[in-house]
Amino acid sequence: MFPSVSLSSLTDNLVVIVTLARGKCGLSKCVTHYLVGMAVADFLVVVFDAILWCTVPIYLPHSFLNITPVCSLVVTLGSAATVVSVWLTVTFTADRFVAICCEKLQTQFCTERNAAAFLGTVTILGTLESLPRYFIYDAHYLIDNIPWGCAPKPSFFSSPAWATFEVLNYILTPCAPFFLILFNVLTVRQILASSRIRRGLYGQRNGEKHKDAEMENRRKSIALLFSISGSFVLLWVTQVVYNIYARITDIQYYSSYTDPHFITDHTAKMLQVLSSCTNTCIYVVVQAKFREELKNAITYPFKKGLWVQGVN
């Protein structure tokens, strides 16, 4: 199940990256920058966290990825990708909040240059936050003086410094984003309030009905904002709760792959990986031009007769 979810998430994000990079989806460059950045971060989450850290060690226990320095690096990069993915989602939500609710700031804030600056800043800070994770793990055993396996050092569970690091890490990702994404509620409230005013201006007086494209866009915005918020909370809540439980009960090792704690941990991780797939797709797949571009990409070989030529 876990490899299937990982493969699906990997494929979905790759499709999103390629399609958006073509720049033919009718989106502004600002929005395109954010969505491509989110998709790349989610893609890296799947590669480092889901595949290299969680899946490969189970099916290939003697691969070079189990050498201690290598698996420590994989953990660090996976953590960095996760932090960047989560905070890019928050940043994009803030950008949409300004775009919809703050018309005076929209032209100054929602620009291609600012989007690039935020992408770079979030990436750098997310990477710096995750660097200490490289020093958490120690070897399980030595073979020809080569350290194998990644086991948390005893000091990780007893040191106040590491305990502080873990608490801050949980607060920053994903607890703080939960509250920040609640700005979506303000956005929806603003949309509903302005929609009532707009209905009053356009009116449905004397039974008249007007098809208002702006109102239709606002309804789609509400659906999108609620979808991204609900998806984020539902798919991350298991990971957050289990991490807190594991810290309180001092779970240091798993006895086997059938250990209930191991199963719970990997189920939470699977839901987190699924979040890496849905976050971008919720925003993008509903776009008609994106679907059109995706359809064109799929049917292109058949339109050009490439499939027939390949068979011949």
Rank of each mutant, 00 (worst) to 15 (best):
I58K: 14
L44N: 07
A21S: 12
Y141P: 06
S231T: 06
A163G: 08
M1F: 11
C101M: 01
L186V: 00
C71K: 08
W236K: 03
L52Q: 03
R189W: 10
L224N: 05
I146N: 10
D138N: 13
K24I: 12
T123K: 04
T111N: 06
P147D: 06
V18K: 13
G310Y: 09
S275K: 05
D259C: 10
V286H: 15
T32G: 08
S72T: 05
F262P: 04
K104G: 07
S85A: 06
F290G: 02
L182T: 05
I51R: 03
F262C: 08
V233C: 11
V167T: 15
V56Q: 05
Y134G: 05
F43I: 00
Q252A: 09
W148E: 00
V90S: 02
I298L: 10
V56A: 02
Q204S: 15
E214D: 11
Q287E: 08
A246P: 06
C25S: 03
F43R: 04
K211D: 15
S85Y: 01
L172E: 11
Q190L: 02
V185R: 13
G37T: 04
N66R: 15
K153Y: 11
A176D: 01
C30F: 08
L44A: 08
I191A: 02
A39P: 00
P3Y: 01
L128N: 07
H266A: 12
F183P: 00
T164G: 15
T249V: 14
L65H: 09
Y254I: 01
P160C: 10
V5E: 06
W236E: 03
F232V: 05
A151R: 12
Q287H: 13
G149I: 01
R96L: 02
V308L: 15
S8T: 14
V237D: 01
S256T: 06
I67N: 06
K24S: 12
E112A: 10
N279C: 05
N217R: 11
W307C: 09
F64N: 07
T93F: 01
V47A: 05
Y141L: 12
T111A: 03
V285E: 02
Q108I: 14
Q190K: 13
C150R: 03
L224W: 10
L14K: 04
I191V: 04
H210D: 08
Q272I: 15
T258W: 07
C150M: 02
D212P: 13
L105K: 08
C281R: 11
L27R: 04
F92K: 00
C71G: 07
S256A: 06
V311H: 11
K304P: 12
M215C: 13
L142T: 01
F97C: 07
P301F: 07
S4H: 14
Q190W: 11
Q106S: 06
L294C: 04
Q287M: 11
T264I: 13
I282M: 14
V86Q: 00
S8V: 15
F232D: 00
A213F: 10
A151I: 09
